[in-house]
Simulated assay, not measured.
Amino acid sequence: MTNRIRVAVLATNAEGFLDLYLSFVEATDLEYSESQQYDMALAQAEDGGYRVPMIAFDQNDAAADVLRHADEFMEGDTDEV
């Protein structure tokens, strides 16, 4: 059985700008425990025209929480860093 996992990839898009590629990956518990969800998402991003540098994080990583805070910070909704 697989689990549907949300993954974001920070990567360079076709125009050469940093961008976020958002995707779902299907991973078994074993694949997840071996962190294969990142490789799956990186491959999807590459197939979508994204290039290195690339780094992936999933919905359970600390980076996902930081991304939520970063959105508030960038929009000016908070002055807390």
Rank of each mutant, 00 (worst) to 15 (best):
M1Q: 05
E26Q: 07
R68E: 04
V7A: 00
N60Y: 15
V52F: 09
E15A: 14
V66E: 13
N13V: 02
P53V: 10
D19I: 07
E31W: 06
E15Y: 03
R6I: 02
R68W: 01
I55D: 09
M1D: 01
F57N: 00
V25C: 03
D77T: 02
V81H: 02
L20G: 03
E46S: 12
Q36Y: 14
A8Q: 09
Y38S: 12
D29C: 00
A63K: 11
V9N: 01
E72C: 08
V25P: 00
D61E: 03
D79T: 11
Q37V: 08
V66H: 04
V7C: 01
D79G: 14
F24G: 12
V66C: 07
A63G: 03
E15V: 03
G49P: 13
N13A: 02
M74C: 04
D58A: 04
G76I: 06
G48F: 07
S35L: 14
G76A: 03
E31I: 01
A56Y: 07
E31G: 03
Y32I: 11
E31C: 02
L10H: 06
T12C: 08
R51L: 10
G49Y: 12
T2M: 09
M74W: 05
M74H: 10
A43K: 15
Y32S: 08
V25E: 01
S33F: 00
V81M: 09
A14F: 04
A70T: 13
V25S: 01
A45G: 05
A56L: 14
G49H: 05
F73D: 03
Y38W: 00
D71L: 13
T12H: 04
T12Q: 13
D65E: 12
D47W: 06
L20F: 07
F24S: 06
A64N: 13
A8H: 04
I5K: 01
D39S: 12
N60T: 15
G48E: 12
T78K: 05
Y21W: 06
M1K: 02
G49C: 11
L22Y: 08
E46Q: 15
V7E: 00
D71F: 12
Q59Y: 07
E26K: 10
R68S: 04
D79K: 14
A43S: 14
E15Q: 04
L10Y: 06
T28Q: 06
V9A: 04
M54Y: 11
T28S: 14
A8W: 14
M40W: 05
A64V: 04
M40T: 01
